[in-house]
Design a binder for these strands. Structure first.
Lengths: 197, 197
DNA sequence: TTCCGATGTATCGGGCCGATACATCGCAAC
DNA sequence: GTTGCGATGTATCGGCCCGATACATCGGAA
């Protein structure tokens, strides 16, 4: 999942690790608290080894004008390669079980602006089904095992159930909007210009 | 975290892995979907190696009457040891940063019926602070970075913000109930009989 | 010039997951 | 009666990600 997010961010502009992390927070802050460096740097190395990203000397950043006055030896700027873009296009087009769980869904949703509408719909519907299943599971527990559970465990289930119900409603709104060609804020989009790839 | 949950369940009654997993689903179903066997069995072995749980021959289950008619060779029943109970008492009494994140809080909450009230309050308050921080982070993003983010990313932040606000309200209710000596369902408890350890 | 907090890169051990592989049981279909 | 199959049940493996930790540099305040 981190791969996907990193590729997505680097396809907008080159960045170094620290920057990447901050962008991940603003883009995925509602999904996961913050990406650990213990995940980030190894992932970066993995992506580089796979040829999907490369180190861009820091003088590549803006132009030759700004550069190595202060030789900031640390700071490795990464940029995406052609292969990386290809891989990103592959990832952003997929809509399978991997895109239905919390983490997968969140990351894919964060890049919905660059996902084509058919894929958006399939992900939204798959996610809805997934959450509905969770919801049914909790309803079952509440209906079948309520008497042998304590008040706190029940409260936890009730709270979880409520959250699931609310997410289903949210997803339903989003699906309805997609079908009627609206952006998530309710504004009508003239045409679907967001074609991935 | 799994250690804690397993110790808690086994302190109620001996169980084998499969059973344990089902119990974990009904107790923690609102927190995590389902515990993977790839976590469960290694954890069981780890706990056993640490002397916190032991294998109980399946004939220990009910009595000698039921047992090895059909020699169910699989099925390893585990039970908690005295050391395990001690460890569980330690874990259920702690209220630090580990108990404030999603997973930690959920598991601890699931065992609140066996946690003393002072600890419950500290955990609830710590969790509230944690969620408030997340909420503030999302508000900042929405206030400061809104114009450079697309509609979908914004919608994700909005949804996350709403969820955080709701959780804070939920926690506040729980805290108020604790302070006034009520169980989470609102029923007045005559006294706080749930003293851990 | 000394200290300190923000910036910045990196590794290590360990927990947990998904995929996968087996083996057995009870039962239904043929 | 045996064949097949889904539920029950235990177990491992590779891999992602996290938290803790360790450094190093920079800019500015004391």
């Amino acid at each position: 999942m981190l791969d996907f997010a990193i590729l997505g961010l680097l396809s907008e502009s080159p960045m170094h690790g620290y920057e990447l992390r901050k962008e991940l927070v603003t883009k995925l802050g509602s999904i996961r608290a913050a990406i650990s460096y213990g995940s980030l740097y190894p992932t970066l190395r993995r992506l580089q080894a796979a040829g999907l990203i490369t180190e861009a000397g820091q003088s590549d950043r803006g132009s030759e004008a700004v550069p190595a006055l202060t030789s900031r030896r640390g700071r490795v700027v990464y940029k995406i390669t052609a292969e990386g873009k290809e891989r990103f296009a592959e990832l952003i087009a997929q809509a399978g079980p991997e895109t239905y769980d919390d983490a997968g869904f969140g990351v894919h949703f964060a890049f919905f602006a660059r996902t084509d509408r058919a894929t958006r719909l399939r992900i939204l519907e798959g996610r809805r089904r997934r959450v509905e299943e969770r919801r049914e599971g909790m309803r079952d527990v509440l209906a079948r095992a309520a008497e042998r559970l304590d008040a706190y465990t029940l409260e936890l289930q009730r709270h979880g159930l409520e959250a699931a119900e609310r997410e289903v409603r949210w997803l339903e709104e989003l699906i309805a909007n997609e079908r009627s060609g609206r952006a998530p804020d309710g504004a009508v989009k003239p045409r679907d210009e967001n074609q991935g790839g």
